[in-house]
Amino acid sequence: MKGVLLVNLGSPKSTKSQDVKVYLDEFLMDKRVIDVPFWLRSFIVRGIILNTRPKKSAEAYQKIWWENGSPLIVLSENLQEKVQQNINDMPVELAMRYGNPSIKEGIKKLVDQKVNEILLLPLYPQYAMATTETVIAEAERVKNEFFPQLHIDYLPAFYGKESYIKLLSKSIQESIQNLDYDHILFSYHGVPERHIKKRDITKNHCKIDKSCCFENSKAHQYCYRHQCYQTTKNVVETLGLDANKCSTSFQSRLGFDPWLQPYTDRTIEKFALSGIKKLVVVTPAFVTDCLETLEEIAMEGKEIFEENGGEEFTVIPCLNDREDWANLLSDWVKDWQTNKLETQEELLWLD
């Protein structure tokens, strides 16, 4: 029997500092998030970050928390329910990479319903070590340890799927069609530059400059930077936007190592100082609104923009639990049922 598992990032159980600390420990101790030796990662996370950051992060979560819980969890549950309504001949479950429900719990729910073949959909449009890869790695670990007879297929990064680009473009168009704006900023979650080079399967293509992301290369299959820039390019072309009024940036950097640039906060500040008065921000690395979109962009980004002379700051919602997004996911599931869906062929770096 077949089943489906949707996997999103996750969220703390509550806005209490202790719950945020537990969540951050699981998240930041992941070797694909902070990719340094365990002893150094433990020193950085448990010796420094967890002694200072949970209180500040808890305050940030309090600003965006809904009455019925974490926005990311609530919206993901709504999405799962809608996909399940569309797919009535197989079970659809939800899991989080960090926090609850865990990937193990999600898989067990399916196995308890006699499922022996799963399509796992990481809800990340672009591939990165700290997103799609860590979801696949954890699912493989759980399968090998607890469910060795289970077969799992994985949906690859879908940033380049025409159906996804059309839907993303449609959602953006709905927000800007009657809006007067000066510029659109496509802000993606940041990753350290070393992650890009680590996942260069050619070992010599990625240079982190203005050229390599647009040169044809098989390295693009696992290159987060390329996939972000390509997403922006595809949307701009689909909507017929003025490319000179659109740009790409990266947010949420951590530590002192170089991360992908330009940085979103500095870009927003620069735009305001340069005379841009009406800025639109879209966050295509996320399919679900969360702390990074609702607080870091919609609140902190707006404050930066207005403090430096900006006047109108518009953040476009993620796809969240839109009916057409649930329908698209359901279509991919149906394609998988009939062996028409391309799934992840190589499970690389799953040590």
Rank of each mutant, 00 (worst) to 15 (best):
S175K: 15
R97G: 03
P156F: 05
G99L: 05
D289C: 07
R141Y: 12
K340Y: 02
T264M: 08
R253I: 10
K108G: 08
E345H: 07
P37K: 07
N88H: 13
K82Q: 15
G106K: 02
C318G: 13
M299W: 02
Q261E: 13
L179E: 14
W259Y: 11
L28I: 10
T232Y: 05
S11W: 01
A326N: 13
F147I: 11
E312Y: 06
Y98Q: 06
A298T: 08
E306F: 02
R97Q: 11
K278L: 04
Q337K: 15
Y229F: 14
M299I: 15
K2H: 03
D180T: 14
M129E: 12
K166Y: 04
K233W: 06
A326L: 13
T338K: 12
T248E: 06
T52W: 11
E145Y: 07
I297A: 03
L341W: 02
T238F: 14
F147G: 11
E307A: 14
L75Q: 13
L120F: 05
E237M: 05
Y222I: 00
Y159P: 03
D153L: 01
Y164N: 00
I73P: 02
Y263C: 02
V135H: 01
E67G: 00
E237A: 07
N51E: 07
Y222L: 12
L24F: 09
K21F: 04
G47P: 06
V280H: 08
A326V: 10
V92W: 05
Q261D: 12
K2T: 12
V74F: 06
S187I: 06
W65H: 00
L273P: 00
N234F: 10
S247M: 05
A128T: 11
W39H: 10
K277G: 08
I208M: 12
Y188R: 02
K340I: 06
W332Q: 02
T202C: 11
N178T: 12
A58Y: 02
A272N: 04
L167H: 09
D257T: 12
E345L: 10
I208T: 09
V74G: 08
M1E: 03
V45W: 01
P101F: 12
L239R: 04
T283V: 15
Y98R: 03
L291C: 05
G275F: 01
H183T: 04
E215G: 03
I48E: 03
K207N: 13
P192M: 04
C213W: 04
I276E: 08
E162G: 02
W39I: 15
K82C: 10
T314A: 05
S11N: 14
E138K: 06
M90H: 09
L168Q: 13
L110H: 07
